[in-house]
Simulated scan of single mutants.
Amino acid sequence: MRTVQLAREHGLSTQAVRNHEAAGVLPAAARTAAGYRVYDERHAASLRAYLALVGGHGYPAAREVLRRVHAGDVDGALARLDAAHAALDAERAVVETVAGLLHRLGGPAPVTRRGSEPISAVAHRLRLRPATLRRWERSGLLRPGRDPSTGHRRYGPDDVRDAHVVHQLRRGGLPLAAIAPVMDELRGGGDPSAAAAALDARRAALARRSRSALAGAAHLHALLELVGA
């Protein structure tokens, strides 16, 4: 098939197909005497696998899997796919951990500044940069107190808890805007359904990615059968 035929099958532009070939996602195409590319079922099968894997694991992982297949490194491709599945499972585990955390810690949090810590200590504990905690504060997700004599931020036990929850939610893939209602509910001042809706939306997104990953694995298997790998 010609470039336009392969592109049309997958709703892509002809340039996108050429880009995928240049990136190693597709094996090198044969050429006619006039220099036109000619693709076959190997290319179509590769593109099906790649696009499905993108939906499940993202562009870098999908690209690396296909590159390794076409380089003859099937074991490496399968290892990369296993790692991508493990990462997806880890994201799901984080979401469920956060759900359990919110359930255990839900309700109004006591406000106390005794035993407070500086921002550097909290950042070190969470393995984050202080700038990240300051950005979360500007977004309204964190509300640390201030030392009256120096004006420096001081994180009490409730503030440390909030930073931990925000960190877990970010690891679970929630954008900052979606975290706000979760934090409101955790502090006892928000709509309980908002926190549940945010987590349910993340679960639904993970389910869609899992389905795409499953389709991608099936298409990859078909490609490996086709090339005799």
Rank of each mutant, 00 (worst) to 15 (best):
R63F: 01
A198L: 05
G107A: 10
S149L: 02
R170V: 06
D73T: 10
V69Q: 09
P192C: 13
Y59D: 01
G56V: 04
G145T: 07
G151M: 07
I119N: 01
L66C: 13
R146P: 13
G76R: 12
G190K: 13
P175D: 00
L78D: 00
S139M: 06
E185P: 08
T112W: 04
A121C: 04
A79Y: 05
R134T: 04
D162I: 09
P144F: 03
M183E: 02
A123T: 15
R68Y: 02
V122C: 02
R187L: 01
G100H: 13
L141N: 11
A196M: 04
A178V: 07
G189E: 02
D75K: 15
L88K: 05
H57G: 01
D159C: 10
A194H: 11
R154F: 09
E64D: 13
P144G: 01
A84R: 15
A61F: 09
V74C: 10
A62D: 06
E185W: 14
W136V: 09
V122Y: 01
G145D: 06
A178L: 04
I119D: 04
P157Y: 15
R129H: 08
T112L: 12
A109T: 13
P192Y: 03
A61V: 14
A109S: 11
R92A: 10
G156K: 06
L174E: 02
D82I: 08
V165W: 04
R138C: 00
P192T: 14
S149N: 03
R114D: 00
G145R: 09
A87E: 14
R135D: 00
A83E: 12
P157W: 10
A197T: 12
H70E: 03
G115A: 07
H164S: 00
D73M: 13
R92L: 10
G151F: 11
A197D: 00
V95A: 01
E137V: 15
H167T: 12
G140Q: 03
H164N: 00
V160S: 03
S116D: 10
G58K: 12
R92M: 06
L78G: 06
D200A: 15
H152W: 04
D184R: 14
P118S: 02
R153C: 04
A86Q: 09
R63I: 03
A196W: 11
L128D: 01
H103I: 05
D73K: 15
R125T: 12
L105M: 06
R187D: 01
L169D: 06
A109D: 07
L105A: 05
V65F: 08
L126T: 11
